[in-house]
């Protein structure tokens, strides 16, 4: 897949990092401000898609990246289920129990396990959207015109 012109490449280099950081901000502050795991994950995937579309890559690095992203996605999903199952160990023995101390409403470190759920669901959503995009690109590269 070919990249675009140098103007697009430089602009993408300047912007992509900031978009990625904004996605992380939205995820981490998900329990205080609008946003959360779903919104931040899709924003992070959008910045990665921007880099790939503007710079272009060769086929083999795409395949390698797809394998790594698949592992990240599965690991994040397993982490969500593990945290949910950990509710059986502490306090009231129910699935999805919020077992950590709650803290003050409005602090960054508060709300028990909700920020952990936000982080892992954000990673999972970002990886899923990115895999879908990568597999479309790989299919278009691989198949004869």
């Amino acid at each position: 897949m070919k990249g675009m012109t140098i103007i697009v490449k430089k602009t993408a280099q300047l912007i992509a990092g900031m978009i990625f950081m904004y996605g992380i901000y939205v995820i981490v502050h998900g329990h205080l401000t609008p946003g959360g795991g779903f919104a931040g994950g899709v924003i992070m995937a959008g910045s990665l898609i921007l880099v790939i579309l503007s710079h272009g890559t060769d086929f083999f690095s795409l395949v390698k990246e797809e394998m790594g992203t698949t592992i990240v996605e599965s690991a994040a999903t397993i982490c969500v289920i593990l945290i949910a199952t950990a509710g059986f160990l502490f306090g009231t023995k129910v699935f999805f129990n919020n077992f950590l101390p709650k803290g003050n409403v409005g602090d960054l470190v508060s709300a028990g396990v909700l920020p952990l759920y936000n982080i892992f669901v954000g990673i999972e959503v970002a990886a899923s959207v990115f895999i879908i995009f990568l597999s479309l690109i790989i299919f278009k590269e691989e198949s004869p015109k």
Partner: peptide, 15 residues
């Protein structure tokens, strides 16, 4: 107070 989360939507989604 129950979930400790200021954003009620996040509280409902994950708790």
């Amino acid at each position: 107070q129950k979930t400790g989360s200021a954003n009620l939507v996040t509280g409902v989604v994950f708790d």
